[in-house]
Design a binder for these strands. Structure first.
Lengths: 131, 131
DNA sequence: ATAAACCCTGTAGGGACTACAGAGTCAAGG
DNA sequence: CCTTGACTCTGTAGTCCCTACAGGGTTTAT
């Protein structure tokens, strides 16, 4: 498939696909005789992975390193494991924080839908000095 | 405390603090006689909240709106509820996405753990991630 | 055959920072 | 005191991550 179709299928901006290629986050695809990029499912999957990772707050460098797990040019299995563990920890921390946020918001909705305003303390609950 | 100290305590770039003030994400702090910004713990907590929120993938606008729940600028209880519900949904989506990512990484660590094999099964696992 | 709808490249714009230049402030040591 | 160094102020310019043209070639459909 060509760039526009890949864009449509993934919801990614077509220009962004080109940009990701430029910064070596996406590999250079094969070209048709007339120079059009030709993508397949592996490109699509990789792009979806990147998009979701970005939504979740991973940096481009994070994603490059995560994807090196896949590309693994001369990366040993031990290193792969280490890298994955680092990301696993950060993912779990994100989940924990979001769960706290969820509970505060849930309480907010509950108490607000009833009578008058309590002091919803989003920040207090969530962001005392920590970590 | 002054800007540099707040920066050091939170790990935020000192210039970024000024930037957040400019875009009304952080409030203008009091100034000393000579014009230096003076921050207290509430500023620190708010900044931590913002920083973490960014890491969790919230946009600046998300954070402004989320913080309006704290600031409560003449917002009615009904609106607070509506706003909280919107954010609650997006928080839950983030949690779901991260959980998927967590399971992928967990499997990765498991299937990879130990030796130096060239053919890790993690490629399939990682690329199976979809929404 | 010719418009519409794509694709190509390069470049310029916008949002969110980040760094720098030139000037003022402050605490400490000589 | 005076100086020196670390810090702050403002404004502006640069970077990173996209996103949107402009000017051209290609494919598809009528």
């Amino acid at each position: 498939m060509k760039r526009g179709q890949l864009a449509k299928r993934t919801g990614c901006n077509a220009e962004t696909i080109r940009y990701y290629e430029k910064i070596d986050l996406m590999p250079e695809p094969l070209r048709s005789a007339s120079g059009y990029r030709q993508y397949d499912e592996t490109h699509e999957q990789r792009l979806r992975f990147v998009m979701r990772g970005r939504e979740l707050g991973f940096t481009i460098e994070d994603l490059k390193s995560l994807l090196s797990l896949v590309d693994r040019n001369a990366v040993s299995c031990g290193e792969v494991e280490k890298l994955a563990k680092v990301h696993l920890r950060s993912v779990r921390e994100k989940i924990d924080d979001l769960k706290q946020m969820e509970s505060v918001l849930r309480d907010t909705v509950r108490s607000c839908s009833g009578k008058d305003v309590p002091e919803c303390a989003l920040i207090d609950t969530l962001f005392g000095v920590r970590r």
